[in-house]
Simulated scan of single mutants.
Amino acid sequence: MTNQYAKVEPIINDDDQLEDVHLDVLGVKLDLPNLNSADLPIDLVNVILLIKSQPVLSDEQTALAMSAFLAYFQQLRPDYWNALRKTGHAMAWLTATVRTWAEQSGLDPKAFTSVPSTPTTGKR
């Protein structure tokens, strides 16, 4: 018995391409894909699907989302990642960058860009 393989052919509509997002953060010019685009980088698909599926993310989901964005920048934008490493407030800059990127892409940034205002660990 021979396996039959169905050929997969996606429907691609280039007419629906959204404009890239352009940010200036820590002196680094970022030309980023629109987070609502069908041409989203594969590195961000999981986190964007999570963000779009929840009105508000839990603290754990927010941490997961931020780690995905940080990994994206580390891999694909080492210039920005290195700028983050040099600042004393890397998480605040990362959060502000992702929030602005989401806003410029037409996503609701409130769902995933809040940073806890209090420490998550107590004194021992």
Rank of each mutant, 00 (worst) to 15 (best):
Leu35Met: 09
Ala102Ser: 13
Ala96Val: 09
Gln75Glu: 12
Leu94Asn: 00
Leu64Met: 11
Ser117Gly: 06
Val28Ser: 00
Gly106Asn: 09
Val25Ala: 05
Asp14Trp: 07
Leu23Arg: 01
Asp24Met: 13
Val56Gln: 13
Tyr5Gln: 11
Arg99Leu: 05
Thr87Asn: 05
His89Tyr: 07
Gln104Tyr: 03
Asp108Gly: 04
Leu94Tyr: 00
Trp101Asn: 01
Tyr5Leu: 13
Ala71Phe: 02
Trp81Gly: 01
Val45Tyr: 04
Lys7Thr: 11
Leu76Arg: 12
Val47Lys: 02
Phe73Leu: 06
Ala71Cys: 01
Val28Asp: 00
Ala6Ser: 09
His89Pro: 01
Met66Gln: 08
Gly27Gln: 04
Val45Arg: 12
Thr95Trp: 02
Gln17Ala: 14
Trp101Pro: 01
Leu84Asp: 00
Pro41Thr: 07
Trp101Leu: 04
Glu103Gln: 15
Leu94Ile: 10
Ala63Val: 06
Asn36Phe: 02
Gln104Cys: 07
Gly106Met: 10
Lys7Met: 07
Thr87Ile: 05
Ala92Trp: 04
Lys123Arg: 07
His89Gly: 03
Ser114Pro: 00
Gln61Ile: 05
Leu107Ser: 03
Ala111Gly: 12
Pro109Phe: 07
Asn82Ile: 03
Asp16Cys: 08
Ile48Pro: 02
Leu32Val: 11
Leu18His: 06
Met66Glu: 09
Thr95Asp: 07
Thr118Met: 09
Asp15Pro: 08
Leu40Thr: 07
Asn13Tyr: 05
Ile42Thr: 15
Asp16Met: 10
Leu70Trp: 02
Phe69Asn: 02
Leu32Gly: 03
Ala63Cys: 04
Phe112Ala: 00
Gln75Ala: 11
Ala111Asn: 08
Ser67Arg: 11
Asp24Asn: 13
